[in-house]
Design a protein around this nucleic acid. Structure first.
Lengths: 136, 136
DNA sequence: TTAAATATTGATAACTATTACTGTTTTGGA
DNA sequence: TCCAAAACAGTAATAGTTATCAATATTTAA
C-alpha cells in the first residue's frame, strides 16, 4: 500500500469543494482552479477527486446527468436534481436516517454509503417562460 | 409533437426488461436481444430505453458505475449496489415512502421521482478469497 | 388495397466524460 | 543533500452514449 504524500493541488481541490454549496463537476473544478493554478491538469483533478472520495473526504453524486458531480459536504443529507437545468440542490430530511438501522437487515451486504435523490423540475425552471423546442 | 408508432424492437426491449429481476445495462439488453433479433442496432436499444423511461414504463438507475442500468420494475423500491461486482440488488423498505410526503415541503421543486441507493460490498463478494490486483 | 405521410430502424460516425500512459517534478525521510 | 516514491502536466486512448441519414415499417385515409 502506497503512503500518501502532500500535494498542493489535492489540497486546493479539497478546500475548493468544501467552500462550495453547489455540487460542481470535475470540469468545473478544473476550470475554476485554473485561475489560481494555471497549469493544473484535468487528469490531476480526476485523480484527486477519486482519491478524496476513497478517503471519505468528499462524495460523488451520480445524477443521471452525463457528468458526475462532487460534494464536499459530508453531513448526512439528500439531493434534489432538476431534470431541466441539472442543478443539484441540498435537501434535509433527518427522519430518513432513522430508517437506515432497519435497512441493515434488508440489504444483501455491508452498507458503506446511502444516497437519496429526488428528481423533478426546480422552482426556478418552473418560473421560466415556455420556449419552443425547435426554432426555425 | 410526434405521435408514437408501434415497433417490434421497442416491444421486445420492454418485455425483456419486465422479465428480468437484475438490472441490465444497455449493452446487456443489446447482446441478449440479438439472439432473437440478430440485426437490432445498439442505437435502437439506446433510443428506446430513453423513450420508455420518458414514458414512465422503465427507470434508469445511475449506479456511479461507468454504465447506466435499467429497471423494468416500477413498483416503489430501493437498490443496493455492490462496489466490487457492480451488481444491483433490489431492496424493500416500505417505511421510506411514508417520508416522501414530508419531503415535498423540503424540496425546491416538484418531485417526479425518488431514488434511494445503498452502496457497499455484497455478501457474495465478501465470501470471495482475496485476489491479487495485478497478475504477472 | 393502395398511397401518402411520417415514425422507426440499422449502420456508422461523432461526441464527450473519464482513464491510462509517460517523462518530469515534488515530496519527505535518511 | 540525496534518494525513492508519489504526484504532476500533457496528451493519447477508451468507452458509453448520442447524432446522422438513407432505407424500412407503420398508420391513416382515400
Amino acid at each position: 500500500m502506497s503512503t500518501l504524500k502532500y500535494s498542493r493541488q489535492r489540497e486546493a481541490i479539497k478546500t475548493f469543494l468544501k467552500n462550495r454549496t453547489d455540487h460542481p463537476t470535475a470540469d468545473t473544478v478544473y476550470t475554476c482552479l485554473r485561475e489560481a493554478y494555471p497549469n493544473i491538469s484535468l487528469g490531476t483533478v480526476y485523480r484527486n477527486l477519486s482519491l478524496l472520495e476513497q478517503l471519505g473526504e468528499i462524495s460523488r453524486i451520480s445524477t443521471g446527468d452525463s457528468a458526475e458531480h462532487y460534494d464536499g459536504n459530508m453531513d448526512p443529507h439528500q439531493h434534489f436534481i432538476c431534470s431541466h437545468c441539472h442543478k443539484v440542490y441540498d435537501v434535509r430530511i433527518p427522519e430518513i436516517h432513522s430508517l437506515l438501522g432497519k435497512a441493515v437487515e434488508n440489504v444483501p451486504g455491508k452498507i458503506e454509503a446511502f444516497h437519496a435523490n429526488f428528481y423533478g423540475v426546480c422552482h426556478e425552471c418552473q418560473k421560466e417562460p415556455i420556449t419552443l423546442e425547435h426554432n426555425p
